[in-house]
Design a protein around this nucleic acid. Structure first.
Length: 482
DNA sequence: TGAAATGTTGGGGCG
DNA sequence: ACGCCCCAACATTTC
């Protein structure tokens, strides 16, 4: 009476609740008594040029452990394998007699073509292959602007999305998962070697709690206490003012639909804080919209005239930026937070990226690659959008001449220097007046704060005022080519 | 989801 | 009292 098993192929949807592919499989299981086999395949080489970095892999490791445990609590077992996805899926079909494979869609071009190929091959082989939307409020091809083209400006995109969006009914997590009883070999999570060989990840453990259950707890905490002040607190990096949900969203420990419905469930009055926050979820949607419609943008500027931009080849400055040794405290604090925790506050991301692109004239692509390697929330869609925004070469981007002043940004958003002191302890005894510009401090103040510029903390690697003028001159070449 | 340069206004010191 | 200048404060423009 029972049908052949159905495989649920987990990818970046590492949750049991509101998971459409899992939910469909469970539904079938309840109706026909068929077994459900949850599978995770580790195949980083199939992600094209954008192989996940070590910080991202750290998160994946712990998220997989959490998912595996949750699946065991439901009476089943997560099968983990490593290698080419297509081959492994066909192997599993052969081993288990499965006749259906369900998964949730991803949006990177290499992965889209891989998955399309897999779907075709499975269908040709008589296997039912079904994919679902498990990561977005509205998928990029389901709506367009009035002239029938993809959106390139956020505000009309967001308006249109909200218009077509019905607040999603989230799907419940399964009560149990009917276990596949015969043996089916699986790697242990540890055997994927996702954790760093050198133990630089100590701070990650104090900072993050990966996994679906923790994601829900963190979201509830944010929505019930922090979100009211989100509008202003989100700009202060020393304050816990943002949701910090980006890694959980990236790995699908939580869905954007769950965030929307949590807002409803907690009956949060439509304060400006909530509006601002949901708008950020909108930016995540916008990023996916752009990535799907303009798949070349991870490496190429959306605005073609920026191909002529005279970027500097300056490995020394790039290294100083990466290591947080530029001599500008707000920049260095951000870069050190990134290195230590795999994350950087969004306001500071904007400041450091403006500095790389405009003060150092280093290509936004180099910045994107560094963030890709070091962020736990590295997402091709969001990373690309953010860097093209900063580079002035993307959709709805900051105009190139909008050049952040690292001193005034620091004084504005870290006025008491708390963020800088946390990440640059060697400056912690400087008075507020000089915390964002130590080179202006008189010798006696530097001395009593124990700071020796050029030794204990670097002198600025560029003069911002000169760098600003230089950037505007460089931009002239793009304008001329326009 | 900037910053700097330039322009305008108005109060107050001063001859 | 008046015009003149200075300059802070704010507004607008430009990059």
């Amino acid at each position: 009476m029972s049908d052949n098993p159905v495989l649920v192929w987990f990818r970046r949807d590492l949750r049991l609740s509101d998971n459409p592919s899992l939910h469909s499989a469970i539904k079938r299981s309840i109706e026909t008594g068929t077994e459900v086999i949850p599978v995770f395949i580790y195949s980083p080489e199939e992600e094209g040029a954008w192989t996940p970095g070590e910080a991202s892999n750290w998160w994946l490791h712990h998220s997989l452990l959490s998912l595996a445990t949750r699946i065991e609590e439901k009476g089943s077992k997560l099968i983990i394998r490593r290698g080419g996805a297509k081959q492994i899926l066909f192997d599993l079909v052969k081993e288990t007699g499965a006749t259906s494979i369900f998964w949730n869609r991803l949006y990177e071009s290499e992965i889209i073509s891989r998955d399309t190929g897999i779907k075709d091959a499975l269908t040709k082989a008589g296997i039912e292959a079904k994919s679902f939307n498990g990561a977005l409020l509205k998928e990029p091809w389901t709506f367009k602007n009035q002239s029938g083209k993809p959106f390139q400006v956020f505000t009309p995109f967001w308006r249109a999305l909200q218009k077509v969006l019905e607040i999603p009914e989230t799907l419940p997590e399964p009560l149990d998962i009917l276990h596949y009883n015969r043996t089916c070999s699986s790697l242990k999570v540890e055997e994927l070697s996702l954790l760093p060989k050198i133990k630089w990840d100590r701070k990650f453990y104090e900072t993050w709690k990966p996994g679906e259950v923790n994601a829900q707890i963190e979201l509830d905490k944010f929505l019930s206490s922090f979100v009211d002040d989100y509008g202003s607190a989100r700009d202060i990096p020393s304050v816990r003012g943002t949701s910090r949900m980006s890694p959980s969203l990236h790995f699908g420990e939580i869905s954007p639909g769950q965030i929307f419905s949590s807002v409803n469930r907690l009956k949060i009055n439509a304060s400006s804080g909530v509006e601002h926050y949901l708008r950020e979820i909108g930016w995540r949607e916008f990023a996916h919209h752009l990535l799907v419609h303009f798949p070349h943008t991870p490496l190429e500027p959306l605005r073609p005239n920026f191909k002529n931009f005279p970027w500097a080849n300056d490995p020394k400055s790039l290294l100083a930026w990466q290591q947080g040794k530029t001599g500008y405290p707000i920049i260095d604090a951000g870069m050190r937070e990134l290195w230590a925790t795999g994350w950087m506050h969004n306001r500071v991301r904007m400041i450091v990226s403006s500095f790389l692109v405009k003060d150092l004239l280093i290509s936004w692509v180099d910045g994107a690659k560094w963030f890709w390697d070091t962020l736990v929330d590295a997402s091709l869609a969001s990373n690309t959008l953010g860097w093209q925004w900063s580079g002035g070469c993307g959709a709805d981007a900051a105009p190139f001449f909008r050049i952040f002043n690292p001193i005034t940004q620091g004084e504005k958003f870290d006025s008491n220097g708390e963020y800088v002191r946390k990440w640059i302890p060697e400056l912690s005894n400087l008075p507020n007046k000089f915390i964002h510009k130590p080179w202006e401090a008189p010798d006696n103040i530097l001395k009593s704060a124990g700071v020796t510029l050029g030794e204990s903390y670097p002198l600025p690697i560029v003069d911002h005022s000169l760098a600003r003028t230089r950037a505007l001159r460089a931009f002239d070449k793009v304008k001329a080519a326009n």
